[in-house]
Design a protein around this nucleic acid. Sequence first.
DNA 1: TATGAATGAGCCTTCATTCAT
DNA 2: AATGAATGAAGGCTCATTCAT
Lengths: 214, 214, 214, 214
Amino acid sequence: MPDTHPIARKLDGRADATRRRILEAALAEFAEKGLAGARVDEIAARADANKRMIYAYYGSKEDLWLSVLEQAYTAKRDREHALDVQALPPRDAMAKLVSFNLRYTAAHPEFVALLNDENLNRAAHLKRSEEVQALYTPLLDTLRAVLARGEAEGAFRRGVDPMQLYITLVGIGHFYVANSHTLSTIFGSGLTTKKALAAREAHCVDVVLGYLRP
Amino acid sequence: MPDTHPIARKLDGRADATRRRILEAALAEFAEKGLAGARVDEIAARADANKRMIYAYYGSKEDLWLSVLEQAYTAKRDREHALDVQALPPRDAMAKLVSFNLRYTAAHPEFVALLNDENLNRAAHLKRSEEVQALYTPLLDTLRAVLARGEAEGAFRRGVDPMQLYITLVGIGHFYVANSHTLSTIFGSGLTTKKALAAREAHCVDVVLGYLRP
Amino acid sequence: MPDTHPIARKLDGRADATRRRILEAALAEFAEKGLAGARVDEIAARADANKRMIYAYYGSKEDLWLSVLEQAYTAKRDREHALDVQALPPRDAMAKLVSFNLRYTAAHPEFVALLNDENLNRAAHLKRSEEVQALYTPLLDTLRAVLARGEAEGAFRRGVDPMQLYITLVGIGHFYVANSHTLSTIFGSGLTTKKALAAREAHCVDVVLGYLRP
Amino acid sequence: MPDTHPIARKLDGRADATRRRILEAALAEFAEKGLAGARVDEIAARADANKRMIYAYYGSKEDLWLSVLEQAYTAKRDREHALDVQALPPRDAMAKLVSFNLRYTAAHPEFVALLNDENLNRAAHLKRSEEVQALYTPLLDTLRAVLARGEAEGAFRRGVDPMQLYITLVGIGHFYVANSHTLSTIFGSGLTTKKALAAREAHCVDVVLGYLRP
DNA sequence: TATGAATGAGCCTTCATTCAT
DNA sequence: AATGAATGAAGGCTCATTCAT
């Protein structure tokens, strides 16, 4: 939809491309080293951009961190929303939510890393975000609806708190992925192979559906 | 000069006290700021010790980190072992394990912080530890025995993998505590009040026992 | 293409306006922050001009500084010349010069700031200016003539060096204004109120005329 | 007076020496380039000290600036106080104050430079100093006493404001020295030769004593 | 003429680590 | 065993200046 002036488009395009490259580079660097360990120089190098541009576009390292965080949250929620679990029978819906969360977490270790570091900092940055805070209300509504349908059908037990359940279904996957390195050290095996992940997925679905039985 | 000589002992005593103060100070500092964010100066100040002593006793900041980590793991495993769940009926044993893990995690956010940061670094330090790696074999044995007893009694379903279950029962508590700041931001409520923790504990026990039903 | 061509003139007109806005903005910025402290970005913003224009018109930050300096000197000398003290009786002429200098200095703190900073740099830029160096010869001639008239009338003492006197009459006002902030800190009072300035003016006239008495 | 332990003395001595070298180096660098133009690296190099020490001892570049400023003020006031003008006849006392101020200013261009830059910053740092603010009360008292003696003897005119006079007697010297570079550029001659300074000194004494005549 | 994007050098500050006593 | 002083290598951030359109 080229309704803007061609030159303006080209200029805008270049700036936007730089912004995007910086954001992607920052995501990678932050995920690898954390907020404190990440280096602005390194982000600039990865983005193939001048360091100065980071400050021009994002203000500071911490503001960049928040932008990365917001983008990561939004990306996950978009995907979760696209599952459209409302269209599925309750048990299938629940299984899909569990599976999705484990797979997404496994496929996005950078999201896990960001969350961990942000929690280390007591969510100091996320608290300033207006964007993220509004992201989860619809999700809880969805989960509540699925639980209600399941109860009505007799497929689920009664009295399940949707927030507790959501934290559980995310947590059982997240913890496995987030701590896979220490867990591998302790339990002495590759927990992140495709096979191991499939096994974990099956277990997680089992746990949640097993628990939800009436 | 036998090292049990009274004078040597006295000296050792003073040295040990310094070592211990440093370790405690390091635990606090690392838990608050992470490995990259922690400051050696600050650790020395908290320990009321000279910075040089840290290097004399622990070699480097990273080695100190590993010592702290080992001590944290050992402390938790000691407490977990002292539960003596073997003496309890299977369902009680399992409930106790779940409860303990949640409560311990909630009471020791520094342990959570250490784990998160160590995983961010791909367990680079823990891998060098011989101490910790041997710590968990007996735990898995215990869990396996409880599961077996439960199966034999008809109290538990069959075919449960003890490692998966252990990761799950730790994870549902750990994730809640570790991410309480971001979760509070998102779900907008105090998740770490006494009441909230009791509710979470009940939910976690419910999930595990519900899942284990035959 | 003669440069008086109407179209060229129009273009020049726009360009001149930009040049002028830049010069004014630079004067303000330089006066507030000094040469080293001033920011080219800020000058461009104040001038509502593109930064590139500064370089197109003035070459560099330092060249811009010199242009500002020259303009400030010229402005003051123009006003001083317009006093036309030659037309006054000697004592009135002298009083007027003293008053003018104090008032002008007080009304133009930016001139003071420029001078101070330029002196900090050992007049490195002003030395390159051909414009300014020719500015003061007529002034000294004027002062010399006033002194001669005063001597002849018996109103002034003999043997007064016009340059020394000029430096004195400028200095007693300039120092007061230039150092008003530190002086206020030390002497603990507002030295820049209208009333305080009037008192200083009276004192300065008193000093010069008192000194010049035969 | 070796009443402290020799080792302690040596240690203290080393640290103090470093502190002092930093202060001296900072004075030189600040005087040459101003606060904004001065480079911390350069100060460290001049002091033959590690840059880190500057921050250990003085906190920040701006705090160092204040320390330098305070030391410069104190040094001048100490010298001025040592003149003991109270012991001289009024006209001699006044002449001595004028001479001292001109000579001191000429011999300490760094003091002039500091003052100018501090005024450019609206005395932002000096305002925080408790030390300097108390320095000038005794001076004004002294000047007031000299004026009173002079009036009583019939040597001085009546009604002279001591603060105005002090600012004048300092200003006529200070302005000459502070602006010697631009003045030299304009008036085209070496104003800082020994001979020129002597001539200026005579002029300044003439002006003040001439003004003070009854 | 004018502009938005980009650059590279450099600045203030901090930190883990070592030296000298 | 313990300490205060010192160090060198970055790290986050800024700035005057230039490029491309």
